[in-house]
Write a protein that binds this DNA or RNA. Structure first.
Lengths: 206, 206, 206, 206
DNA sequence: TATGAATGAGACTTCATTCAT
DNA sequence: TATGAATGAAGTCTCATTCAT
């Protein structure tokens, strides 16, 4: 291997990294601005400036603003899924898995509500393409699905569609966490436990 | 009373109605556009056009766009409250009241999801003035509050803050109704009953 | 003369007064707003409101905004002329007349600069019709003209066109008074006297 | 130096010029419109059209209309200062310097009155920031200040504040030049000389 | 005569997107 | 590939003026 190929590698790595960096920087900047200032006033120029690239550069990586935002939406969903399911093992007792997920949600809301508040914003987007994207999003929550499946098979959970179970349980966690983050409702540790238990009551058989 | 005074009355009513009509037309047009196309692309000119008035006319009735939207928000909240609590009597058994409210929500979602889908949109507004307005909105849901209060007093419900109880029960109804309206989840009558029962389990003591 | 005709007279007087009042009120309101807030933001509605009449009413007394402002301009000029020449008698010694006029100007500036500051504003109007209006305005300053005429005849003043003499003397007073009113230059009594004397030097023969 | 570098230079100059051109074109267009039509009806679109650029382009170079006009104001002041003091050397006799300045003013008025008539317009602007800007403007007239200072030191001029001396002398030149340009007063050479002498009489000791 | 609701042109400004370099 | 100047459509809001009552 000679100097040139080394150089070549370095450069292409450099180039690759640069390229990846640009895309990543743009996404990061967009998320950051979205969390800080919301949709209003989120202009392509502002994003470019925050990302340290030229305005035109964004269009090399994203068709247009809508595509950029769709990707952001997916990333945030992904991050939520990852965080939600962190430290959850399919071998753990269902009850414990449920609790861990609830608390994960809570942490998500606590870190400034950045991620969650983003989520709210996307709700005002024209709704995702509903076909392939819905499926894709569901796959992200494999451990949640697995938990519901197991719970129903063992007769612990009510025999309802997973999405309904989700709406009755963890979705409530999202709703309450948001209100907690906004300061509308205050939760101390005991109240939090009580809320978790209550939502658990919604999905188990009595 | 002679013919002229009758005519006079009619005409002044006419005049009054015309005036009221303009304001009302603008509000209706705004709601309609909001439900159909969402916030993006909701321009004052579009509103004016749909309302059948000139662009400048809107500003005779509303200080600016923000005021117009705030009023819309309040109207929708009001309509939701009214519909939600329709046919609910504080003398009815709690269980029945709860069921009626749930079904009311469902009807709200069925009429094209117009009202509910609106509600989502407003969530991305800068949040109401948080002082007097929050109070005002809560008063709209007096029967809901009353139900929770009674339920807790009688030991039927868990001793949680009303807002938490709401999040665990009727709010779930809103969430599911929305998904139903969007066609994401299908509910037949039995499933609906099961969902109502499940959410009931969340708030009652076991 | 019976009661009815009395009533009739009273009413027509009333009507006449009302009519005159309206016109006058509009002019007063315009001047007042102009002095307080300047041209920017001087809308017909604001004028109407301040005058206590409806917006449309203005158009019964003035063709359009331009005509209204032209009339205002003339009124202000008139007021300036009156004030400038107050207490000036053609029998007084020229030197004294000159001094009185200068001091009159100063008072004009002192009363809040309202009148003078108005004057500035009109300068940005499209310039008067330059034919008949210029003549009309000159007639307002008869005593000034008279003073210059006499001064030249007696050999006291330089043999220059009146308008040039005016620019060399009293106009300077206007300029300085304005700067005084704006706080740009401060004049104590001695300085004021010195300025008067200096401008006097400009027009007399040495 | 080879052809390419020459070409390179030319191109980069071209690029530079193009950029500068836009800004300059906008300023020129604004001045021109201001002189021709005054403030009323001076719209950003009109400016853009006259400058041969898109409306949005103006906002790349100026924050908003106010900033654009402030810059115009400063440019005009600058141009007046430059022209006024042209061919004036601090070594020349004071009397001669004074005369040259007066004549410079006259030339300023003669070239269509464009610059001077502009000056009037700015007077109706909210007045400059009064702190640094006033100072800045005064510095532009260094030779004028120098002349007054010397004249007072030598006992030739009256011991008055420079701004008062200016109002008594050169300011009169501005006033008369404006009227001359507007065709209100006609000045032949002798009259002009007489006016210069008269204003000189205002500031010298007798 | 007086009203004031209504109009709609037009003002300033923003911003997604393009394209020459 | 990256830039960023330029574009121009579209947005919110103001305001002189009209006209039915």
């Amino acid at each position: 291997m000679n100097v040139h190929s080394l150089l070549g590698d370095m450069m292409s790595n450099q180039a690759l990294n640069t390229e990846q960096d640009k895309r990543e920087k743009i996404l990061k900047a967009t998320e950051s601005l979205l969390a800080k200032e919301g949709f209003q006033g989120l202009s392509m120029h502002k994003i470019a400036k925050h990302a340290g690239v030229a305005a035109g550069t964004i269009y090399r990586y994203f068709d247009d603003k809508e595509h950029l935002l769709k990707e952001i939406r997916f990333r945030v969903t992904q991050r939520i899924a990852t965080t939600l399911q962190a430290n959850v093992d399919d071998a753990m007792p269902i009850r414990q898995r449920y609790r861990v997920m609830w608390l994960n949600l809570w942490n998500l809301a606590r870190d400034g509500g950045r991620v969650l508040s983003n989520r709210v914003q996307y709700d005002s987007l024209p709704i995702p393409s509903t076909e392939k994207e819905w499926e894709l999003e569901r796959e992200l929550f494999a451990k949640v699905e697995q938990m519901f499946r197991e719970g129903k098979q063992s007769g612990l959970f009510k025999p309802l569609d997973n999405r309904i179970l989700f709406g009755l349980s963890l979705q409530v966690g999202v709703t309450l966490a948001r209100k907690h983050a906004l300061g509308v409702i205050h939760f101390d540790d005991d109240t939090l436990d009580a809320a978790i238990d209550a939502s658990w009551d919604a999905i188990i058989q009595h």
